[in-house]
Amino acid sequence: MAEIKKEHELIVTVSPHIKSEESTSRIMWSVNIALLPAAVMGAYFFGPRAVLAIALCIISALLSEYIYQKALNKKVSINDGSAFLTGLLLGMNLPASVPFYIPVVGSFVAVIITKQLFGGLGYNVFNPALIGRAFLLISFPKLMTIWTKPEAAFVQFDAKTTATPLGILKEEGLSKLIEVFGDKMNLYMELLKGHRAGSIGETSAIALIIGAAFLFYRGYITWHIPVSFLGTAAVMAWIFGAKGALFAGDPVIHLLSGGMLLGAFFMATDYVTCPSVKKGQILFGIGCGFLTMLIRLKGGFPEGVMFAILIMNCFAPLIDRGFKSKVFGALKETKAKEIKK
């Protein structure tokens, strides 16, 4: 609309009259920036292959979106940052050692099947990046669980492989995990820094927290989902985390390892796929935390963040219905019936 640009002229329009600078693309690009520290740390620990994997994810996500929208004669929206975000998130959720066709397949599934076929941005039921990753994990179970040892050396191509902290915890127990990292304090520090095996962008807790703090500061995410997600997971880890005894688990290890922080701050809070009512968001977060810990402690996979968020995505519309606020001035159903009679 051209008339909005002429600010000093008298504008006669219907409400809303107060306009905000915010827009979808501004929010999307802010989230991209917030993810940058974690991505950089991933690149630092896992080397050039990690950079290539992320770059391939982003490029193929953008290309998929462009081709689909061109083919259907729709407005091309690759500049709004949402396809870029999907690619970046998917790349950060892959192990660094993946062969190069995997990011391409994953981005295609994420952007075209999960997002565009459901109607594009705003209409997708599931988080595109997570569906892309779930598709890849089920399609290539071996390749998607080869974890490179972080070496912090930028010129290495033949990396050693190792197990993730959660994998060790699941297979060999807590004492083995502490043994691998030296002592408990060292384990916490390494987890915080991100010097551990895992997906490219999920390892560095401190970088993820910095990114999330930026989003909190800008007001793009609220505390409801992350706090209830992490809180539930921590409580569950504390109560059921230790084998043989209740109330003896170590919640810190569970919070800092796996994709817990990346999931809680950046993926469960996706505007499109989480409930929009605040009370409902708390329930959503509790569900995510509960399912994550259920899968981690009792399930077949060592990590459950992805499946937990995807399962709760299904419930988002239902939660919204259950928690929708009362319409001002509207009568209760029973009362309305009485009046009708």
């Binding site: 062969p99 066709y101 397949v105 598709f135 089920i138 399609s139 290539f140 179970p141 390749l143």
Partner: peptide, 13 residues
């Protein structure tokens, strides 16, 4: 081309 097939396609999903 040295790629693995998409295992998910032969599964129910």
């Amino acid at each position: 081309v040295n790629t693995k097939p998409l295992l998910i396609m032969v599964l129910p999903a």
